[in-house]
Design a protein around this nucleic acid. Structure first.
Lengths: 152, 152
DNA sequence: GGGAGATACTTAACATGTTAAGTGAATGCG
DNA sequence: CGCATTCACTTAACATGTTAAGTATCTCCC
């Protein structure tokens, strides 16, 4: 069997960990986890979104997002209100405090990203991102098994 | 601020998820999680290892590994015995049952990997792995923040 | 040879990943 | 209309990620 330390999943895992290791300490100083930060960033770009759409954007599963939103709301970093037209949906937006927190984290975060880009090389970085996107595309149609068999 | 859906961490996360989505169902049918599978694969290649070394190989943190080994041992998929020379160390090895389980999972797993390779292209795959390795290298010296400042 | 410090784990505590089940609201269709 | 189905989310349950603290053992140096 193939040496698993050279398998694609392991390569991706290690690479991502190497990157995140750079960011986590800074986020931690501000009391934010990686996922919480993703959510705030996603919210910063827009006025308000439904939870489902936010899950798609921040690439989180519903249950994770549900918990995190509960906590972020308790910390007054986000706001929620149910949609008028459809009582099932709730619209999420970033709060004034959330914006302020982002402003205090962003510079540091940007600096780290710049340093990563500098070390790895901007061109190579773009290339890598293209390949990652292509990989995603390659596997997109393949789907995730639910159509693998007729069971369950 | 940079569109975060195009940030490197997100690209890596999505790519990895696209890949793992292919494997999880097959593993699940055999009652294995991704991490448990990583451990079995790491163990299959050798006779016995210390827990710390296994953690490095399978790219798991100590506490995660500790829990998983406890469960795998309860399921008789691995065996443990404390090293003679150093009572602190425990040597882990795969059991006969573990080998059998691996044998029943591996073919399917290999087939999936082959399909991914076919879709994405063997050459591109190798290229991607090289870049991921290079990225890791770029960030290796940078370390993980503990040397960022003198605090704590 | 004995105690301070280092090592190899394990436990604990909290946050997220993952799947399944639950809840309340909207929709469609007979 | 009415009710089965779908939809948007939440809760639950279990496994892992992550950091800190705990435990037992070992090392080294006085």
């Amino acid at each position: 069997m193939r040496d698993f330390s050279r398998s694609l999943p392991m390569s991706l895992l290690r690479a991502r960990e190497a990157v995140m290791r750079q960011f986590r300490p800074s986020l931690r100083e501000h009391g934010l986890t990686e996922q919480q930060w993703r959510i705030l960033r996603a919210l910063a770009a827009i006025d308000a979104v439904e939870v489902t759409e936010l899950a798609r954007t921040a690439f989180l599963l519903g249950p994770s997002l549900s918990r995190i939103l509960r906590d972020l709301e308790a910390r007054n970093l986000i706001e929620r209100k149910t949609a008028k037209a459809d009582q099932r949906r709730s619209m999420v937006s970033i709060s004034k405090e959330g914006v302020k927190l982002m402003a205090s984290v962003a510079p540091n975060s940007e600096a780290i990203y710049a340093e990563i880009t500098r070390r790895f090389g901007a061109r190579k970085l773009a290339e890598l991102q293209d390949m990652l996107g292509a990989l995603e595309q390659s596997l997109a149609e393949l789907g995730g098994a639910e159509e693998a068999s007729a069971e369950e």
